[in-house]
Design a protein around this nucleic acid. Sequence first.
DNA 1: ACATAGCCCGTGGGGACATG
DNA 2: CATGTCCCCACGGGCTATGT
Length: 334
Amino acid sequence: MATFKQAKRGLNERLGKLNELLNRRLHAATTSIPYEDWLETHQPYHWLAEFYQIIHDNGGFDVIIGNPPYVTFTDKSIPYNVDKFETKKDKNLFALVGEQCTIISNSKSSVGYIIPLSGLSIEGFKEFQRIIFKQRDSWNIFYSGDRNPSELFTGVKIRAGIFISRPQSSGRKFVTKYIKYYTSERPILFNKINYTECFDYISAPKLDKEIGKNVVTKIFSFDKKLSSEFYKEESIYYHAAPIYWCKALINLKILTENNLNIAGSYKKIDISNRYKNFAFILLNSTLFFYFWIAFSDCYSLTQKYFSMFRIPNVCDNSELKKVAKELSNDMIKI
DNA sequence: ACATAGCCCGTGGGGACATG
DNA sequence: CATGTCCCCACGGGCTATGT
């Protein structure tokens, strides 16, 4: 045992010397700032030295399973230099970890990360998406972690995505829909997964069936953006944090009259005369909710989705007026 | 304008304990 | 043993406030 300890100490000393040598070389080759300062700001870590057999002889780790830290940072708040990372723009530690994992893995690696849903869906993490989606020929994503009706793990009220990639190169990429579940369903949750082939590798949309892709393709086939009808003629209000469905109101009277202190969650949009009824019905529809869930972080309904959603040319006919009126009346009943 | 390993609160089940 | 009370905490549901 004593000899083992001795050998370990000797090994650590040699590794320390090697790291020191590598630090000196890296410092001399890359910067003119004082060595000690550079050490403090860059905190270099030599994967090649620490895991020589794995990185050098075998080209990287065979398996990487990650639950990386979800911590946002700013240029000021991060105590070391991360300039080398393309995902620096995404401003979250999990993105940096994901990028580093692509460097220390190889084509035969299996990788799996659990990360915030936003990391796989929204534009703010597009560098991260570009890197992990493109690095691999094949992968699948399980979208989950909704807070409502319950959480993936107790105490973790976060929407998450589980990204898994195995070495078999089928060239196929799969996603699930956004899966909601009750606590009691946890034991059987993974049996409920239904994967479908992904059709867009930036913001891998959460669609579970072929028909979902057809619906989205049809929406994108129209030229006109919904937001192109946002004129100061009329206005409607939409709920900016949908949970089970999207909500829109002609006015907020119904809320304030019933002392519902949620009027603050509604945002006003200006809409053209011609599209007021159409937009009111659309923003209350399962279609719009389905579309928003597919592309969003499943939390905030923002302007972006009004620009993404394409609409046909419609006339504000009596049929639309009638349906809008009925819908409005039904809401008052509740 | 947008995103937040959030923030807050009511509810209900069940365990610990006291009383009948 | 049966019943009642209190309390804790997991759970579900809703949106505030803050920094970038």
